[in-house]
Write a protein that binds this DNA or RNA. Structure first.
Lengths: 212, 212
DNA sequence: GTCTATAATGAGATAGAC
DNA sequence: GTCTATCTCATTATAGAC
């Protein structure tokens, strides 16, 4: 009935698919479930996409591109009171974890999509791209945190970022399984100290003002 | 043709299913694929199990029960030269990671099984049990490492164990995605230091021999 | 361009012969 | 107890009317 351009239909289907995947999982995201969510007919799907795989590729690209920084908001909200790097890292991790708790299904879906892509050699690059994006998001936060607190990292920022992704992945999985907020809190404390350990404290640099 | 007892058939099917899941993923582990792997007819499946879900439950229990300590072998191989706790933690993590590299499909399968169980509320307890087992395995290693090096943990051993599982999960996922051995090596160094930080060094206790 | 109808395939589960 | 044959349902994809 209603006329939609092919590209509009594609994006509408991708958005519907994102909702289905988050709510019911990757395996439940059949073409039928997706078109039902989008309020379209099954034929419209195959008018917009040649195959389900083609949509999945676009879906992963969409959620990965849409991956806003989960960390920097917390850093920005600290405002003009940078405090210590330790505090900045802690605030960022707590902010990330708040996001996980606010939308656990989304996190489940992200893991599922990674593993789905990992299974088919054809889509392995997608998983890789997904994690490149995670690393980039974390690295931006890492750089910001150092600037705000006047610290320097003792390791390359890309490496620090990878450590953060490792910690947040592990934290998230464990919490998704047991929903243990206390354990998560302890984990965040641990992760904060571990990451902060990778920085040269501000006071060291302040004391020896002239550096080579 | 060949007569098998029902329990033998069940275990044979579970073992076949484990192989299929590891090789091709959870979604590929259909009843047909499983009976083909086991060399049985489809009807034999439903003679041994009332449903596929029933087999999946037994499958997860089997792989979880079979989860031998991935850490203690390395600790034992250190033998009578306990060295420092830092060295013990490092050896254990390297040993774990060697296991991941030796059989990546198995690790992929473990993550998939967790998420499969996590999707269906009916099986959520299975995922929980799976992680309880991980924690227990890690805790045993944590206790052993402290004993061997004469150190004490500054945190409860159960908490240290959870931190280790968090780190190994994050490490494993990242490596499964990008197969970056260098990054994994850096991650192991980081994880080692972070965990070792949770211990009261041996020399501290040696210096002050009488403790309250 | 969009729809209904339907092919083609594969899934889990079962009936009933032997 | 084990098998072949089949049922029922859901899937992706396509054909062809409008």
């Amino acid at each position: 009935m209603t006329r939609m351009s092919a590209v509009d239909r594609r994006t509408a289907l991708v958005h519907a698919a994102v909702r289905v995947v988050a709510r019911d999982g990757v395996s439940a995201a059949t073409t039928r479930a997706i078109v039902a969510e989008a309020g379209m007919s099954l034929a419209s799907f195959h008018y917009a996409f040649t195959s389900r795989d083609e949509l999945m590729v676009e879906l992963i690209n969409a959620v990965v591109d849409g991956e806003e920084s989960a960390f920097t908001p917390a850093l920005v909200s600290l405002g003009g009171a940078p405090k210590t790097l330790h505090d900045a890292v802690r605030a960022a991790l707590l902010d990330y974890f708040d996001g996980v708790r606010a939308d656990p299904d989304r996190e489940k879906a992200m893991f599922e999509l990674t593993q789905w892509a990992l299974r088919e050699p054809r889509f392995e690059g997608l998983a890789r791209r997904q994690y490149e994006r995670y690393f980039a998001v974390a690295e931006a936060a890492v750089v910001t945190a150092a600037e705000m607190t006047g610290c320097e990292w003792s390791r390359p920022t890309a490496e620090v970022a990878r450590m953060i992704v490792m910690l947040t992945d592990g934290l998230t999985i464990a919490w998704l399984v047991n929903r243990d907020d206390e354990a998560a809190s302890a984990a965040i404390d641990f992760a904060t100290s571990a990451i902060a350990q990778l920085a040269i404290p501000a006071r060291t640099r302040t004391k020896s003002r002239t550096r080579t």
